[in-house]
């Protein structure tokens, strides 16, 4: 791995206990600028819990989550509220799609702009020129994002009426609207057909290349993971069991064991 790359996210010894259950056990992980990192592992390995710890939905029991925004002070994310984490520039999508079903596609993305805009209640009532300009700007930039993910034609549809694959892409667009420098995707290809998956693959590469957003994704679709991500982290029973490039992971006996079970004589 190149040493001159800027480290964006640094997770050290992250542990999360639910009562007596240790869902995440001292996991260490780093995401560098320009990376498309992947976190894989069998079901119940603690990947989503790990995501929830980073994004502030859970407060981890032990360990450090450090964010190094470029040109800014390092911030420790432990115990911060999810909205604060997003404000720092770390956006996420959800494993089971969590859109705002009764809002239009465009409005869904406009919500993402919320934390980057700031007109308050009184301004909204008076609706001065500056507020109208800001509103228009939100609309334009949101629409622009929809064009990027290929949903511009659906802008005024209710998001609940979108086909499944499009809902996934909308979630990505919404996360991107918060101007993140690191995007966490929780199983973006879950439930997609091969065509949709390959579209998604292109989209993720495009985001990474054009927007300079680093990506950390959880995924079960090995083809997708092997195609686009480097490095790959593997988790099992809450522990990190391997990390490395796709080739290294493929040949790692521990990983094969985790997925296929132990070899017998």
């Amino acid at each position: 791995m190149a040493e001159n790359k800027h480290k964006l996210l640094e997770v050290k010894g992250l542990t999360m206990d639910f009562g007596g259950l240790r869902a995440v056990d001292s996991v260490t992980l780093e995401v560098y600028e320009g990376d498309i990192a992947a976190l894989i592992g069998p079901n119940g390995a603690g990947k989503t819990t790990f995501f929830n710890c980073i994004t502030g939905i859970y407060n981890p029991s032990k360990g450090d989550i450090l964010l190094h925004p470029k040109g800014l002070k390092t911030r420790r994310l432990n115990g911060l509220k999810p909205n604060k984490v997003t404000e720092m520039g770390l956006a996420r999508t959800f494993q089971n799609i969590r859109l705002f079903p009764d809002m239009t596609v465009l409005e869904n993305v406009m919500i993402g702009r919320h934390c980057r805009t700031n007109s308050g209640i009184f301004k909204a009532i008076i609706r001065s020129k500056s507020v109208r300009d800001e509103e228009q700007q939100i609309v334009e930039s949101s629409y622009h994002l929809l064009e990027k993910v290929g949903l511009a034609d659906f802008a005024n549809e209710f998001s609940k009426n979108l086909p499944y694959g499009a809902q996934r892409r909308l979630e990505i667009a919404r996360a991107m609207a918060t101007d993140p420098f690191l995007l966490l995707l929780d199983e973006p290809a879950a439930g997609m057909n091969p065509q949709e998956t390959s579209d998604l693959e292109q989209l993720i590469c495009k985001i990474s290349a054009e927007e300079q957003i680093a990506i950390l994704l959880i995924e079960h679709d090995m083809k997708l993971v092997m195609n686009i991500s480097d490095p790959i982290y593997v988790m099992e029973y809450g522990k990190k069991i391997a990390e490395g490039s796709p080739e290294e992971i493929k040949d790692n006996p521990k990983v094969v064991e985790a997925y296929l079970g132990e070899e017998t004589e």
Partner: peptide, 24 residues
């Protein structure tokens, strides 16, 4: 307005709303 959209988003899905950077 921006506030109204945040209200509606909160009604629709509180967790997604907070993950989008809205102070619940």
């Amino acid at each position: 307005s921006r506030i109204g959209r945040a209200w509606i988003a909160m009604r629709e899905d509180e967790i997604a709303c907070v993950a989008m950077g809205i102070d619940i």
